[in-house]
């Protein structure tokens, strides 16, 4: 009953909430913990033990050692993602997520940043800004032996937008990333500025990216316009060369996050035609 992007990280039979908690609680088999953490987030578990167990999994992360297995970090990454999905019930985990934002593993920092955004944790603004402060040339540079960036810029930028505190210091940190060489990072920066300020010029930047020759960039711009709920982008979204599934997600964002013209009824009528 799920699309590829919503499928479990490993094959598994359907399990109960009790079973998911049991798998996360044991510590013999980290692949079972991995699945348990994923399950609790996916099913939006409200069990009182879920958040404490996920916090524990975050604390058991390990310093990354390229020679060693990194299973504990894989569990911690899933735990961070699950805590984001359990927002706002996972407020208690904000200090653990802030610690994780200082981890040496950039994949973990990425998961922590996204979760802090989903929790709308204004406590995280300073740390997020610090991570980005060195700008596209340093934080946004490619790592020596990997296509990944020094900092998980997309996640850090988007978290600032999701938290939604419009302050000059935040805008000053975000703006330089509009000049990043990757259109995905430029899209993330424009989305954040649009969410924070509501200024049309940032929405127009995203609309320009809907024409990008790479499908991946058009997808990102669609998701970003949706996340910002920017209704003036409606016609451009409708005309984008992309699958209906992606347009439907973007239009859902316009309905839920946006206001003004076009109104709900026009947006819903167009969504009906994409089914």
């Amino acid at each position: 009953m799920a699309d590829a992007d919503a499928s479990p990280p490993q094959a598994g039979e359907p399990i109960s909430e009790q079973e998911a908690l049991r798998r996360l609680r044991q510590s013999e088999d980290s692949s079972q913990q991995y699945y348990g953490a994923w399950w609790l987030g996916r099913m939006r578990s409200q069990h009182p033990e879920a958040v404490p167990l996920l916090q524990q999994a975050l604390r058991r992360r390990r310093a990354r050692d390229s020679g060693e297995g990194v299973e504990e970090n894989a569990v911690a990454r899933n735990a961070a993602r699950a805590l984001g999905k359990l927002a706002p019930a996972a407020q208690a985990a904000i200090p653990d997520l802030l610690d994780t934002l200082q981890d040496g593993d950039d994949g973990l920092r990425e998961a922590a940043a996204r979760a802090l955004g989903q929790l709308a944790a204004s406590e995280a603004i300073e740390a997020l800004c610090e991570r980005l402060a060195s700008g596209p040339a340093v934080a946004g540079a490619q790592q020596a032996n990997s296509p990944r960036l020094v900092e998980p810029c997309e996640a850090l930028l988007e978290a600032l937008g999701d938290i939604g505190v419009n302050e000059p210091r935040v805008l000053a940190v975000v703006k330089p990333f509009l000049g990043h060489e990757s259109p995905l990072i430029r899209s993330a920066a424009a989305r954040t500025l649009l969410q924070l300020s509501g200024e049309a010029r940032w929405g127009e930047l995203l609309v320009d990216l809907l024409d990008h020759p790479q499908l991946q960039v058009r997808h990102a711009a669609l998701m970003d316009l949706g996340a910002a709920g920017w209704r003036p982008g409606f016609q451009a979204i409708a005309a984008t060369l992309a699958e209906n599934s992606l347009k439907l997600i973007a239009l859902r964002g316009l309905v839920e996050q946006g206001s003004g013209d076009p109104g709900d009824e026009a947006l819903l009528a167009y969504m009906d035609t994409l089914l």
């Binding site: 939006r44 859902r252 309905v255 839920e256 709900d264 009824e265 819903l268 969504m271």
Partner: peptide, 14 residues
């Protein structure tokens, strides 16, 4: 209800 996003609620209401 749990997990039903506003867009679905608004479409059903319409």
């Amino acid at each position: 209800a749990d997990g039903t996003p506003p867009v679905v609620q608004r479409r059903a209401k319409l």
